[in-house]
Design a binder for these strands. Structure first.
Lengths: 206, 206
DNA sequence: CCGAAAACTACACAACCGTGTAGTGGCCCG
DNA sequence: CGGGCCACTACACGGTTGTGTAGTTTTCGG
């Protein structure tokens, strides 16, 4: 059997270096390409057709979740192993929803990491118990309207209800009601808690 | 001349793997030890007396800033190169204040990384322009009282002024005045902005 | 195509919040 | 050791916020 071809997508050069060193030392694994952001990763995946893509989440230009989505969309059989530092449940869940075959933390030791790459190559779903717990501990998706998300972003930026009313061209009273609804969905009591929650869950990027 | 001895402290196994592969491929560099958190890093540094310690910031048990402080304290001539993902100015500044000889981002390419390790080994201060800019863009330290920091933490957790008054055993009016002072120091207008700012600057851990 | 659920609009009221003003006590520096 | 600075305490006032109630529109499943 041929070597399993691996594409490494990570913006940290030293991580790519580590993957190359680790995988190329194995007789049946081979790194055939590297990319330092999601966009280049998608291009490389389409060109190289690797058996497994090892993908970081937090990257400039295009994040790993979106890159995973695009790779899986254009190559239905593609296997993506997400290797990340991120511990926000929404990102991990998003990665799986985007079609990742496995998700493991960067703290994973070399042996377990190799095992994960091999398992994913074989089409086996790999999710560590650690990751599972994080996802499970996440309350059901807040499921906010786009409108509500925009409003939440304004709240986080410190705008008053009056400011928001002006910004969206609606009455201040309406803004009050809308924020109220948002707080109920988030399970918080006021805009301060909502801000902490939004930032913690990554619902709004600062 | 003997090989330059390097200790790698990072909680990500794959990064340690990368450093080992990168440095050991050089004729005059050698990784003599690895540690996966700050505490083990300090112990290893004291035992191995490496010429350079490559240190991550974000780690469990003891972070890289504290570890750097301790290593520099017990070995005044020690050279620490902080290699990090973190982009919060306060952490980068703290790393330098703790005695790090160099600070570079993890996105640094292999060649530049090797150069940095060599420069630091030679006692030369290494701070990329990217890092410098981040630090320079940081406003002067907010300089809050411990009391004020505690209060800020309560605000971030969503407590009302009445709650905080109860918690600290002071009048609600006093709490109002105190929060007012905190907001002025942070340059914000209300508790919501204060929450965003506190979380962004890492003044309060969630 | 229709009915239910949910979002959006609006307003009044009650609770909450932040500022101006003011007094006390601690600490540092000249 | 006296003056200045700042943290801490306190209160009243005016502005901001969130909820209850209620009507309209949109959306989605049957």
């Amino acid at each position: 059997m041929d070597k399993t071809k691996v594409l490494v997508v990570d913006d940290h050069a030293i991580v790519r270096m580590g993957m190359v060193a680790l995988l190329n030392a194995q007789p049946n694994l081979e790194v055939v390409g590297e990319a330092k952001n999601g966009e280049l990763g998608v291009k490389a995946a389409n060109k190289l057709r690797p058996d497994v893509v090892v993908m970081d989440i937090l990257m400039p230009v295009m994040d790993g979740v979106e890159a995973t989505r695009q790779i899986v969309a254009s190559q239905p059989g593609a296997k993506v192993l997400v290797l990340t530092t991120s511990t926000t449940a929404s990102e991990l869940a998003a990665a799986l929803a985007a079609g990742a075959t496995g998700v493991i933390p960067k703290t994973t030791g070399n042996a377990a990491l190799l095992a994960a790459v091999r398992s994913v190559a074989a089409g086996k779903r790999v999710v560590t118990s650690e990751i599972e717990e994080i996802i499970a501990s996440d309350e059901p998706a807040p499921n906010l309207t786009q409108h509500q998300l925009d409003m939440l972003a304004s709240i986080v930026r410190g705008l008053t209800n009056a400011d928001i009313a002006l910004q969206f061209g609606i009455s201040e009273n309406t803004v009050r009601k809308a924020t109220s609804t948002i707080f109920a969905k988030l399970g918080v009591a006021n805009r301060t808690e909502a801000t902490a929650m939004a930032l913690r869950k990554g619902l709004v990027k600062l």
